[in-house]
């Protein structure tokens, strides 16, 4: 099961289309173990669709997806569930189950995939809640009693419930104030280091890109261009130039 391969996710020739509109056409992407990869792109270039395709919420029209050494389209349902237990997903607004408390939200994947005793499950949920930077008493609260930033942290705690190998984040810092966003970046970086996570993160936040991403994938012309920040700064593509040399990029201290 624990294949120590360096490639955690490998996409080959992914095609996604909706009606006449082609979003991805022959997209290839490799994600290495232990890296933080940021995915950027203009509106409508299919960042979220790409993430949903990898985690199986959207079926690609063509191409293959290999996660942790397993071809996703060739797996039986049971094997698929086993792979799904090894990734955690943080949706844009947390997607917490509104009828459950935060602690119950964190325990939901544990109940489904493990046979832990209730006492140990309570303790582990409390640990994840604290690791995500929430106060201890947040566990008893319902999602509607939390602020936007706290919902994201609670969503992160749930994504970490089963100690995943891979963490998918959809715009983790969107809607947070700059201080909260910087804290969240640091939190993800810390957790990534201490838990040895591989992180795939969709973001528009240039500060996050600089602060925590090892590599950046840019969705452009229906493909993805992956490289370090330094590689992209040399890129002559007009959109990429605009993106990394625009006023906001300068404010974030890149492309100067």
């Amino acid at each position: 099961m624990a294949v120590k391969s360096d490639l955690v996710i490998s996409l080959k020739g992914i095609v996604n289309r909706f009606g006449q509109q082609v979003l991805h056409d022959g997209l290839d992407l490799d994600v290495k173990r232990g890296e933080v990869i940021g995915i950027v792109g203009g509106s409508g270039t299919g960042k979220s669709v790409l993430m949903r395709t990898i985690i199986g919420l959207n079926r690609q029209a063509a191409g293959t997806i290999t996660v942790l050494g397993q071809r996703m389209d060739q797996l039986s349902d049971a094997d698929r569930t086993r792979i799904e237990a090894r990734w955690g997903v943080l949706f844009q607004n947390g997607a917490l189950f509104s009828s459950l408390t935060v602690a119950e939200n964190v325990q939901a994947p544990m109940r489904e995939h493990t046979d832990l005793q209730p006492r140990l499950m309570d303790e582990l949920a409390a640990l994840k809640i604290r690791l995500s930077g929430l106060p201890a008493d947040a566990g008893a609260k319902y999602p509607s009693q939390l602020s936007g930033g706290m919902k994201k942290r609670a969503g992160l705690a749930r994504a970490l419930a089963l100690d995943p190998d891979i963490l998918f984040l959809d715009e983790p810092t969107a809607g947070l104030d700059p201080i909260g966003a910087a804290e969240f970046d640091q939190l993800i970086r810390n957790l990534q280091r201490s838990l040895g996570l591989t992180v795939v993160m969709i973001t528009h936040d240039l500060d996050s890109l600089v602060a925590i991403c090892d590599r950046i994938g840019i969705l452009i012309d229906r493909r993805i261009r992956v490289g370090t920040l330094a590689d992209h700064l040399k890129d002559e593509h007009p959109w990429i130039k605009e993106y990394f040399h625009g006023p906001r990029a300068r404010a974030a201290g890149i492309g100067v």
Binding site: T101, A103, D122, E123, A125, L127, R130, L131, G139
Partner: peptide
Amino acid sequence: ETEDVLPV
């Protein structure tokens, strides 16, 4: 080092 781990 994580403090205050209080199960609900």
